[in-house]
């Protein structure tokens, strides 16, 4: 009997090693250790041995069983790993083999610029105000110190609509009427920006559209000065365009601000060294600004001796075009998907 046990124990490693699948290994396990297995059969035969023989045989059996179990476990681990590896290998996917991609949409370039600008101004403590696109002459011109027949009206080619008396209702030529509404409807202190769509009687070409977008800013508070205007625009400039881009103000004229200024920034393409885009000047003209004209404050019921403020404004479309190197503004407005999809974010 001891010999049988030893033989089985000696043969087992080869038989276990011969199993090439987990299923085959299970058969080998059953043959050796199962209810009808060889060691089990021998164990049943131990009843005929004397106590001493039984003790010796029992020890031999246990030893053989333990070594077989160890061998089985180790082989099982091997075979399972091999089978998993085979499965995994057969499941290979080429991740560049894409069919039926989910569609990806895009935000309009104007929206992207709009949101970026608004985010910077919100960070600077401004709220965001909006207003109607069709306005009365009062909000668009009169209240802004541009009376009828004022030569400065020539600065805006206005589209009028057939409502009310002739030339009294118009498509707003700038977002400044929103400034009037904010001042009329609310109380200082006012820290607000007003992005929006504006209209001019202009034929579309590579750099003009009859419909485009602006963002204006308005601050009205006590003791607001030109220095605050300069500081605010400088802070905005570096926040939006990057720390190496600075601003400068040059004297200008607008009926609704005084002193008035042009707002220039270092050319973002050459960082002020001079290039074709900036006409070798190193500067880009961005927009206009100034201290809110006392007449405008009076028009909205504010005492210019008590309150002062500044306003600024610039075009939004050009910033979109500049950021992405688009050379024709009309491209933004055809709705051509081949254009829109180029700017996912």
């Amino acid at each position: 009997m001891i010999d049988d046990i030893k033989r089985i124990g000696a043969d087992a490693p080869a038989r276990i090693a011969a199993a090439t699948t987990v299923d085959e290994l299970r058969t080998v396990e059953a043959d050796l250790l199962g209810k009808k297995g060889e060691l089990t059969a021998l164990k049943k035969g131990m009843g005929g041995l004397d106590p001493e023989g039984r003790k010796v045989a029992g020890a031999a059996l246990n030893e053989a069983r333990e070594s077989i179990e160890t061998a089985l476990a180790s082989r099982r681990t091997e075979l399972e790993a091999a089978e998993r590896a085979a499965t995994v290998a057969s499941e290979r996917l080429d991740l560049t083999e894409l069919v039926d991609l989910p569609e990806r949409g895009s935000l309009h370039l104007v929206t992207q610029t709009w949101d970026r600008l608004v985010d910077v101004f919100i960070g600077m403590g401004f709220t965001v105000a909006e207003g109607p696109e069709v306005e009365t002459d009062w909000y668009n011109f009169e209240a802004l110190n541009i009376p009828a027949a004022h030569p400065a009206r020539g600065m805006w080619d206005t589209l009028y609509v057939d409502l009310g008396d002739p030339e009294t209702v118009l498509l707003r030529t700038h977002t400044s009427p929103v400034q009037i509404r904010v001042m009329t409807d609310g109380e200082p202190p006012i820290y607000a920006v007003m992005p929006g769509r504006v209209y001019r009687r202009d034929t579309a070409d590579a750099s003009h559209m009859p419909v485009f977008h602006q963002i204006e800013g308005l601050v009205v508070d006590r003791n607001i000065s030109f220095a605050d205007l300069a500081g605010t625009l400088e802070a905005f400039t570096s926040a939006y365009f990057g720390g190496s881009i600075h601003s400068r103000l040059r004297p200008s004229y607008f009926p609704f601000t005084e002193p008035s200024a042009e707002y220039d920034i270092n050319c973002v393409f050459c960082e002020g060294n001079g290039c074709r885009t900036c006409g070798q000047t190193g500067w880009l003209e961005l927009g206009g600004c100034g201290m809110v004209h006392p007449t405008v404050l009076t028009n909205v019921g504010l005492d210019p001796e008590e309150w002062s403020g500044f306003a600024f404004g610039f075009g939004l479309d050009r910033l979109s075009l500049m950021r992405h190197g688009v050379d024709d503004i009309r491209e933004m407005y055809t709705g051509d998907v081949r254009f829109l999809e180029q700017f996912p974010s």
């Binding site: 989910p102 569609e103 990806r104 949409g105 895009s106 935000l107 309009h108 104007v110 929206t111 696109e133 769509r197 559209m209 009859p210 419909v211 933004m332 407005y333 709705g335 998907v337 829109l340 999809e341």
Partner: peptide, 10 residues
């Protein structure tokens, strides 16, 4: 949802 934003003139 795969939709592009357009801005036709009004």
């Amino acid at each position: 949802l795969g939709i592009h934003e357009a801005m036709p003139l009004p």
